[in-house]
Design a protein around this nucleic acid. Sequence first.
DNA 1: TTGATAAACGGAACAATGTTCCGTATATAA
DNA 2: TTATATACGGAACATTGTTCCGTTTATCAA
Lengths: 195, 195
Amino acid sequence: MLETGKNPDRPVRADAKRNLDLLLQAAAKIFATSGVDAPVREIAEKAGVGIGTVYRHFPERSDLVIAVFRHEVDACADAAPVLAASHGPGEALSRWMERYMDFIATKRGLAAALHSGDPAFDGLPAYFQERLRPALQNLLDAAASAGEIRSGIEPQDLLRAVASLSAPDANGDTSQARRMVALFLDGLRYGAVGT
Amino acid sequence: MLETGKNPDRPVRADAKRNLDLLLQAAAKIFATSGVDAPVREIAEKAGVGIGTVYRHFPERSDLVIAVFRHEVDACADAAPVLAASHGPGEALSRWMERYMDFIATKRGLAAALHSGDPAFDGLPAYFQERLRPALQNLLDAAASAGEIRSGIEPQDLLRAVASLSAPDANGDTSQARRMVALFLDGLRYGAVGT
DNA sequence: TTGATAAACGGAACAATGTTCCGTATATAA
DNA sequence: TTATATACGGAACATTGTTCCGTTTATCAA
C-alpha cells in the first residue's frame, strides 16, 4: 500500500504559516486601534486573506483575541533576557518596565473583554502571571544582586502596581503615568544595599 | 382656529406609561439573568410589547441599560430613609448594607459594560456616587450620633470597599462576601464613642 | 356617545457582523 | 509531472441592533 493518505506529521504548508503571521500582525494593529470588538472582516482585509482563512486558523473570534494577547505577552516576556544581556541590571529593569507599560497600554481594550464573563478568556490572567512573573523575577534578582535595588520585591506586586499606575490615562496622555512609574521604581532603588 | 393640533402639554398616554414600566421590569430581570448583552427582542417579548415600542421609549439599546441602572440605583438609595425610619441607626445601617450588596450583585454584568469604552455609559459612575453617597452619609451620621459606630467614616470609601469585598464571588456563593462585609462593619463599631 | 386626531404600537425590513460551507487553487511529495 | 491533502476565498446563513411605516388606540371635545 502506497503511503499517500493523510499524513499527520506532514509539515505545515508555507502559505498557511505566512497567513497565520499576517493575521496576527493585522489583528494586533487593529485591536490596538479600534479595540477588540473590531469586525473580523476588517482584520481579514488588512491581512489580505479571505474570511474563511481567518476561521480556519481561529475557529472563533475569541481564539484570535486570545492568540494576539498571548503573542504580545510572550513578546514582552522575551524582551527581558534580551535587555538583561545588553544592559546593566538597573538599566535593564527600567527599560523593561517601559516595555511593560507599552504592553499594558495596548491591552487597555482587552481589559473589558477579559472581565466580560466570556469563559473563553478565563485562562488569560493566569497566562499573564505565568509568563511575566518569572521574566521580571530574573531582572529583579539581577538588580538586587548588583546592589542597585533593594531585595525582597515581589514581581507580581510590581506588575499589578505598574498596571494600576498606568490606568488613569484619562486624556490619552501617558507622560503622567510614566512619571509615576519612574518615581515608583526610584523607590526600589532607595534602600538598596549599595545606598 | 380650533385648538386641535399637537398639544405639547398633553399628558402621557396610559398605555405608554404602562409599557414603559413593563419594559423596565422585564429588562431588569433579563439583565440580571443573562447579562446586559441580552437581545432586545428577548426583552420586548418578556414585556409583551413589540420591538418598535422598545425603541420608541429607548432610542438605543444603551438607553435601556442606563434606565435600568439608574432605576436600581434609585431604589437602593430610596431604601435608606425607609430603613432609617423603621429601625434603630445601627440596624438600619446593617440592613442597608445588605441591600447595597444585593444591588452590587445585580450590577455584576453591568461592570464590564460600564468600562467598555462606550461613551453612553460615561455618566453612570457619577450618578452612582451622587445618589448613594448622601443616602449612606445620613445613615452613618445617625449611627455615629447614636454612638453605635465611630465617626469620620467617608461614605464613598465604604461604598467602594463593600463593592470590592463583594467581588470575589468565584462560585456564585455570596455567603463569604457577606461574612467579610459583616466583619468590616464590626470594625466600624469598634471604637465607637459608646464602646 | 361619538368622531377626530395625535400618540403609541407592532413587526417587517434593513444593516452589521459572527460563523459555516464548499468549490477552487496550490504546496508538497513521489 | 502528477496526484492529493491542505489551504484558500467568499457566498450564504444566523443573530441582533435599528429604522420605518401602516395600523390601532387613548384622549378630548362636541
